[in-house]
Amino acid sequence: MANEIEKIKDPGLPAHKHRKADLDPKAADRAERQVSVLFLLSGAGTALFIFAFLFVKTDTFVYLPILGTTNAHQLFLGLGMAASLFFIGMGMVHWAKTLMSDTEVIAERHEFRSSDEDRQSFVDTVKEQASTAGLGRRKLIKRSLGFAGLLAALPGVLILRDLGPLPRKALNKTNWDKGVRLVTDPGYRPIKASDLEVGAVAQVLPELPEGTERTLENIGTDAVLLIRIRPEEFQLNAERLSWTHEGIIAFSKICSHMGCAVALYEQQTKHLLCPCHQSTFDVTRAAKVIFGPAARPLPQLAITVDAEGYLVAQAPFNEPIGPSFWERSS
């Protein structure tokens, strides 16, 4: 560069400054004592660790300011371990800083680029090897090798096939069906409309046939929230209104965004809120999304009562519950 000559000159590495301990043997002795004190503190930490491990019961609690009530066993174990390690480290660093040579050393760098001859001979070698193998001339070999190579990757993918079943229609299915009773979760008791006061919420699941085990997968698709408000507060079309019963409305509890449990119900505003990303659904308007990243309302379950007065589903959900997926048609 043109202005290189104009740059302020490098005065070179400043003269080495000696530390106290380099010049004064007394200071050096003092540093040595400091280092040993640090190592001894580490020993004390180890002793605390052993003591806590052997003699402090795992269910002893102590009250400490700031920390509050804490498990004494794990606290003292931890403090002992921390001291044992920390002070060894401090000792070593202090030793290095005060007593080991601190004269700066200069080492030269070398360029990484190989010499031109080396590079040329490398290229020649590669070329020669390629030509011995006939890569240049034998097109057919090259192409069929590429073809076989690509093909050989397939088994690597295929062999993973048995990781799980194909989804088929599984994402569209729940255990809700016409006439299936709503049962409480927990408890699995059928409920009547009168069990739910205005303003109340309940989590329900479909009653399963006797002897069927309820799995977490079932809960992940079947969980439904029942909410009771005053019927005149609904702003629903005739069809959706007919899916409610005496002010009781039922929605899938699995968020239409990413599947978290939509667990918070605000009685005043009649909003359902998903704590994961705060999607908010208006209960009075068929769980329309009024805030947040969810793009669809929570699916509504049509409910009614059976001959004995228990709440039942009128029909299965008319759309898949939970987060979207490619095959979802609406």
Partner: peptide, 18 residues
């Protein structure tokens, strides 16, 4: 560097303790 390893471990243990 070695000493520093012990210091980092010690600090992590302290955090784990309290």
């Amino acid at each position: 560097a070695g000493g520093f390893f012990f210091i980092v471990f010690g600090v992590t243990a302290f955090l784990g303790a309290v």
